[in-house]
Design a binder for these strands. Structure first.
Lengths: 337, 337
DNA sequence: AACGAAAATGAAACCGGTTGCATTTTAATT
DNA sequence: AATTAAAATGCAACCGGTTTCATTTTCGTT
């Protein structure tokens, strides 16, 4: 049951294995008849190219690894989709790994991935404490950080999480809101979330608003966690009039909780989401949110990575995607009672 | 900038490369001092294991390929998550490929994947015309079909799409509905969708209901397509009183369309979804649907695959997961006017 | 001290392509 | 027919681990 090799094909075709190798990769420089003969043989013998052998010989593979905190978040799923579709069409295959927002696991995963000698690496952020490690990786292979600005020499495709978040709070302020709560991501662990938290703090102090511990929730970007956080907020003696949610899933769950408490969105509480998940425009009320072009981040990252992998010596990639407000109906101006 | 190899480590440690190889995989059969010395050297020299070399030598890799129609469907994303988490913890890495519901692409992808000599293969269904090809693959490596019953000798973890769908229609019938429309998947292409379509046909004829072409929509399982389909249905002179949606995303979009048309769910039209996506319980009205344990399908498939890959000679895997109704508020009994 | 079994290690073939360079074949030109 | 450039193909070392079988070391026993 052993696999046929190019050597066997070569023997039967009366040529050398080099010629068979060329038949696969550079058919144009073979004699037409030889080529036909070899191809026929490969067909007959059910030949299957052995990528592992090629990888070893060439020192690299046609694999690209994507590292995300979790696979089943809508936004990362979109990003992965963008990457996957683009790279698959270029002949690369995409391996996905998840870190569960854990720095140690991230580091371990990255090491294991490097053993595969991938052609490129796509990271969704990275833990702060792994920064120097990531930089050392970037010296070894094409690498792009996604979803966040990264410091040189790292390439990135993302946006300014700090600024975007700040803009949202400022917007809520301009609508008259003063009691503004924030359901944030795991800011003690994730750089991206940390920046958003910082934006919240700076917003408060910048507008002379008091910091209230009970107005800030650290939650994973899931429906369940959004629910948990909102359940806490809605029972507060002094309820917030507006809540920033770190992602749309949390926002959707928050709306449900608010409704279940007999309150209305945006009547009693305004909700501002983050990401603009596909489903957000279909819910009731349609969600006001900030659009993050998750899929485009994937596609663009893949495109740049592809260029780097093909050896383009372009300067460092620093691509900032646009994140416009999507004003729908879950947020409105506060009318003074 | 060449990578350090075990041979270099061996030379510096004054041992043979075989010993270094053992230090990596079977440290217990090395002398303690030798082991320490080698490990120290690996650390100092920044040694990185070359998986490609190992793959070639061993004839297999520690990679598992997952083939899905599309990555960013919530249900497949869940399945992939389940797979990924399970297998990553077992030391495998997971490569994802998508077929876009295209048989030719599926076949092409599978061939390319086989070049990687993966340790196992996980398929989300497969195109009907590729069946014999898939069966031939199953003879070469551990392979499990997910989301659908498969015929021997194929292993599968899934459920009976035909029966589950039939149950839903029967349920709607028992609620008094007679004008029942169906937004189906791409049944001309996907086996899974084809079976559901057949269930619809059999339901109609089984209950003496007329087949109306305008009541059946072929649509991809996306929000946009669900919207398109429902927009068509809602303008029909004789509107359906209940609509089966092939997946929850379509159902969510359908509800929005109905609301926008000034009608209510379930007041005017009952909606029955499929999948029980995480978000479905959070929307308004909470969606009545059929729960598909997407993540569990992934986990179970991964578990079985893992067993097969470790050489367990268990009989064929035929695991049917439970798909209970989740009765929420988008569906109700028809009261005769 | 001698012996045998167990533990530790080495030698080298092997996995299946790749590729630079050499060589042969073919075709074009004078 | 001779010359030469171009096209086609071969040779063989190489990529970096793995693994079988043989050999050497170590160590407990008598």
């Amino acid at each position: 049951m052993r696999k046929t090799t190019i050597h066997e094909i070569a023997a039967k075709a009366g040529v050398s294995s080099a010629t068979v190798s060329r038949a696969i990769h550079s058919p144009h420089l073979l004699n037409e008849k030889t080529l036909q003969r070899i191809r026929q043989l490969m067909e007959d013998q059910d030949y299957s190219y052995n990528a592992a052998a090629a990888n070893l010989s060439k020192g690299t593979s046609s694999g690209v690894a994507v590292v995300v905190p979790r696979v089943n978040s809508p936004v990362f799923a979109d990003t992965i989709t963008g990457i996957q579709e683009y790279l698959q069409s270029c002949g690369y295959y995409v391996t996905v790994a998840s870190t569960h927002y854990d720095a140690a696991e991230e580091r371990h995963i990255l090491k294991r991935i490097m053993e595969q000698r991938p052609a490129g690496l796509l990271l969704t952020g990275y833990a702060a404490e792994n920064e120097s490690f990531v930089i050392s990786l970037a010296a070894k292979l094409p690498l792009i950080v996604m979803w966040e600005k990264a410091i040189p020499p790292l390439n990135y495709v993302g946006f300014n999480n700090y600024q975007s978040t700040l803009d949202i709070f400022t917007h809520l302020f301009s609508l008259g809101h003063r009691r503004i709560a924030a359901i944030l991501g795991p800011y003690t662990k994730v750089v991206r979330a940390k920046r958003r938290y910082q934006a919240y703090l700076d917003f408060l102090s910048g507008h002379g608003l008091p910091f209230r511990q009970e107005y800030v929730c650290e939650a994973e970007p899931t429906l369940a966690e959004g629910k948990r956080a909102m359940e806490m907020l809605v029972t507060l003696p002094e309820r917030p009039t507006a809540v920033f949610c770190n992602n749309d899933l949390q926002a959707i769950a928050a709306i449900r909780v608010i409704n279940d408490a007999g309150l209305s969105v945006p009547g009693d509480i305004s909700i501002f989401g983050f990401d603009d998940a596909a489903v957000s425009q279909y819910i009731t009320p349609p969600l006001t949110t900030l659009h993050v072009p998750s899929r485009e981040i994937g596609t663009e990252s893949a495109r740049f990575l592809h260029e780097l992998m093909r050896g383009a010596q372009s300067g460092p990639v620093a691509h900032i995607v646009d994140t416009p407000f999507i004003l729908r109906n879950s947020c409105r101006a506060l009318r003074e009672a």
